[in-house]
Simulated scan of single mutants.
Amino acid sequence: MLQYNKNMVKNLTSIEIYHQDFLDKMMRIWPEFLEVKGFVLLKKNKGDFEELDENKILSIYYDRTGFEASYNEFRIEDYFDWCIEKPIENLALAIKLSEIWECKLKRDFPSYKFHIIIGFDGKFTTIRFHKLRDEEGSWIALENLDDYKNNSIAVRVVE
């Protein structure tokens, strides 16, 4: 819980955020996750899910896990341009983001399990997640992580 003094309340009520870039970055750090038609998705824009066609999604991605892992992909360099030429810092940021996302997913969906997957190819870093489903396998098999010879892979298991 946060408690405020009067000066802080006055300052907080005067904040006006106009800069869309700032809002986009904050939404990735402490994102909004929504459950729509059984999918858990990272909210990227207003109205993202108004026309979510489950049948079309399943015909393209074959399962819910594949769609979630694809849709929920977030490439660090696309939002944090200060680290474009610093690949190891991108990776460090993704690891920290995965901790934040774990916290948020646990809080928002306490009865679900998730995999948060971090991929690093030496230049670019991606982070994505999907809900674990008994009827579908994981998007990346934990026992086969060393099979990805050209990429570094980490999976944070959220239970």
Rank of each mutant, 00 (worst) to 15 (best):
I88S: 11
L97P: 03
Y62W: 02
T126R: 07
K104W: 00
I60N: 09
E73V: 11
D147T: 08
D24T: 04
Y62M: 06
F124R: 07
S138E: 11
S59V: 00
T65Q: 05
L23E: 08
K113F: 09
F80K: 06
G137H: 07
R128A: 15
A69Q: 06
L142H: 14
Y61E: 00
D24E: 12
V36L: 05
Q3A: 14
F129A: 04
Q20V: 07
I117P: 03
E159Q: 05
D63A: 09
K131L: 12
T125I: 03
I100W: 01
K43F: 01
G119W: 00
I29R: 00
W30M: 07
N90A: 14
A69P: 00
Y112T: 03
I118G: 10
Y79H: 15
E35W: 03
T65N: 07
M1H: 10
E136P: 08
Y148Q: 02
L52F: 05
M8Y: 02
I60R: 13
Y148D: 02
M8W: 01
K104E: 07
D146K: 15
F39C: 10
E16W: 03
E135I: 09
D134H: 11
K46P: 07
F39D: 06
D53W: 04
H19P: 00
D81L: 13
I15C: 11
N5Y: 08
I153L: 14
